[in-house]
């Protein structure tokens, strides 16, 4: 299945203006109806912490293709005790370990480098581990990344994203390397600086999920893969022939020219990579190189 439920479509368009109305849409759709016992627990007052405790309300998307009651997507509400510094990831971990062990999401490093836990939080792609609960309006809606098939709960199928990443020859390919085993290829500080931001990508898929073009064109390489191409195309250690080849790859029908510079990818990137700028620069390089061959 896909997160592109009809109601989510309409919600996406409203999310930018106001998160509130969108949330009520979902209330109606997904929190009613039969629930599994684990879901019930979370709404029972006995499973809410004591009144004196400061809690936050999170509403988490639930889906499992083989479990009765979860085959129809729904939202479960959890009241999670708030502690200073608590992140969205901390909150879903708490909900899983204390309320419902079947609550499923990817996570690993907890420090914004493994890129596992990109979720759709209050209508925006964010890394769960890097998003402070205190910065969010309640109830906090936590959904899987839009525009990717949902495997279960907050887990999406990343295969398509990986395929695009691997479609741009995502590896360094110089014409030659120095003869001496201990001899370095020199790279200027300026050139390293130029590619620096592009090398920070953690493959979280937030940009890809935020991109309207990628949503509509299944073959569009998307911002992350184009950024990966940029990383190598701009590296002075690769030869001109290889750079030309890379520019041809990104100039294909489903390459850079599809980008409409909406900046949604740049806005959601948790590593602050100027993705849109990189794509624009690739466009300029492609034009320049085409002129050269005229």
């Amino acid at each position: 299945m896909s997160t592109q439920l009809p109601q989510q479509e309409s919600e996406e368009s409203t999310a930018e203006e106001a998160a509130e109305p969108a949330a009520t849409d979902h209330d109606h759709e997904h929190t009613g109806g039969p629930r599994r016992d684990v879901g019930d627990k979370t709404t029972d007052t006995e499973h809410e912490p004591a009144d004196t405790e400061d809690t936050r309300e999170i509403r988490v998307f639930r889906y499992d293709p083989e479990i009765e009651g979860k085959q129809e997507p729904r939202f479960d509400t959890f009241h999670v005790p708030f502690t200073r510094g608590m992140t969205v990831l901390d909150a879903v971990i708490y909900a899983r370990d204390n309320f419902d062990p079947s609550l499923t999401f990817r996570h690993s490093c907890r420090q914004a480098v493994c890129g596992s836990d990109a979720f759709f939080v209050n209508g925006e792609q964010r890394l769960g581990c890097k998003t402070q609960i205190s910065d969010l309006e309640e109830p906090i809606r936590i959904e899987p990344l839009p525009h990717q098939d949902v495997v279960k709960d907050l887990v999406v199928d990343m295969d398509h994203f990986y395929e695009e990443m691997e479609a741009v020859d995502p590896y360094f390919d110089p014409d030659e390397t120095p003869d001496g085993e201990l001899e370095e290829q020199r790279q200027s500080r300026a050139n390293r600086e130029k590619v620096k931001m592009s090398t920070r990508c953690i493959w979280c898929g937030a940009c890809f999920s935020s991109c309207n073009i990628a949503a509509g064109d299944n073959e569009y390489l998307g911002p992350a893969a184009l950024n990966k191409a940029y990383r190598f195309a701009m590296d002075e250690r690769e030869g001109d022939g290889k750079t030309q080849e890379r520019l041809e790859t990104i100039e294909q029908d489903h390459g850079v020219w599809r980008c409409q510079t909406q900046f949604s990818c740049t806005n959601v990137c948790p590593k602050d990579i100027p993705l849109t700028e990189h794509i624009q620069e690739l466009k300029r390089e492609a034009v320049k190189s085409n002129l050269k061959f005229w």
Binding site: V38, D64, P65, E66, P101, S102, T104, K152, D153
Partner: peptide, 11 residues
């Protein structure tokens, strides 16, 4: 294990 699913059973 409380999650009976065979799909992405992190539990």
């Amino acid at each position: 294990v409380q999650d009976p699913s065979t799909t992405f059973n992190t539990d």
